[in-house]
């Protein structure tokens, strides 16, 4: 039975069934991936951004360590997770630092991905080699994503290790799991920014323009979006006088909805939930809903369930940015310059 199905599949996709062909298909992609990785690791730009992230990581850890004892006094559970979420000495927490700086990692890795190739005349030479055209953009995205994942996980591991040395309390399984999910989520978040900057690098001819465009997006998403959400919600559901009684719920729902369009908000919300088992809901909770609830922490699985939509949305945003970039690049007319 299975054999006949396999045969049928093979017959309907003859190109994929041939092993030699299969191998050949990935030659260009692999070569590009390796080259892009090497380029990133050796580039000064990447080292600069790495230094910045490491610096802020340690600064936030220092802040967290200095104030962790007072935090622990309030409630002694999940101390290890507090390393990431506690801010102290007016230094923001690790999580909020990454939420702000993450976009810059993506930006630095992707803003000149395509247009610099075009401007230096290497794109024509590259495309005249026996590789598929999408290998170029796929290779660039995958190499950037790989770098991001490695970097974020190494950062998280480093902060955990130093934190462990400093406080001497090992993380429980659940805490470790939560940290891994947090790091994964962070990587996806940064990948979104990578996708966005690759998109602009396809759309804009000059690297400087695409970098500015990404920075503009970053500003809009992190700062203006929440302002805008408040204004729009207030315009749709006014809260003056009596109206407040009827509109309160709709107002908050609307504001939340608009805010969630921003990956920054989405990320912050999800990360707060996963790193803080005390968070029981990400939406609006009425007092009647809370009535009779047993006070306690949310299990890991339930926290994951809460942020699942966030993760899906984030992946979808990343994919949308990348797919637009992909289509634009594939349809791009290679012209005589």
């Amino acid at each position: 039975m299975t054999q006949t199905i396999a045969k049928k599949l093979k017959n309907s996709f003859p190109a994929a069934a041939e092993p030699g062909n299969h191998h050949e298909k990935y030659i260009g992609l692999r070569a590009l991936f390796h080259k892009e990785m090497a380029d990133h690791i050796r580039s000064r730009r990447f080292l600069l951004i790495l230094a910045l992230v490491v610096l802020t990581g340690f600064a936030s850890l220092y802040g967290a360590l200095s104030s962790i004892s007072s935090v622990v006094e309030d409630g002694g559970d999940f101390i290890f997770l507090k390393l990431f979420t506690t801010s102290g000495n007016s230094i923001p927490s690790f999580v909020s630092f990454i939420a702000l700086l993450g976009p810059f990692i993506g930006l630095a890795l992707g803003f000149d991905a395509i247009n610099s190739e075009e401007n230096s005349g290497t794109l024509n030479r590259l495309l005249s080699q026996p590789i598929y055209r999408d290998s170029v953009i796929n290779g660039k995205f995958l190499a950037g994503a790989a770098i991001i994942f490695v970097m974020i996980f190494v950062m998280g591991g480093m902060v955990s290790a130093i934190g462990l040395l400093a406080i001497g309390i090992p993380p429980s399984f659940e805490e470790a799991g939560r940290i891994v999910v947090f790091l994964f989520f962070t990587s996806v978040y940064v990948c979104f920014w990578l996708g966005l900057s690759i998109l602009f690098s396809v759309l804009c001819r000059h690297a400087a323009t695409s970098a500015l465009a990404v920075i503009a997006c970053w500003l809009v998403f992190t700062i203006f979006m929440s302002l805008l959400a408040g204004i729009i919600a207030a315009a749709l559901y006014p809260l003056d006088g009596y109206q407040a009684l009827f509109n309160m719920m709709d107002y908050y729902k609307c504001e939340l909805f608009i805010n969630r369009l921003s990956p920054y908000y989405l990320y912050s919300e999800a990360v707060t939930t996963i790193l803080n088992p005390g968070v029981r809901s990400v939406g609006i909770v009425t007092t009647s809903q809370l009535e009779g609830a047993v006070a306690g922490y949310l299990p890991f699985g339930q926290s994951l369930l809460l942020i699942w939509p966030h993760l899906v949305a984030m992946c979808a945003m990343t994919l949308i940015a990348f797919v637009i970039a992909y289509l634009k690049f594939m349809r791009r007319e290679i012209r005589a310059n």
């Binding site: 380029d39 050796r42 230096s120 005349g121 290497t122 794109l123 024509n124 030479r125 005249s128 310059n337």
Partner: peptide, 12 residues
Amino acid sequence: GYMPDNVGFYPD
């Protein structure tokens, strides 16, 4: 083998 006009290489 195609050698484009003003052939470009990775300068680094």
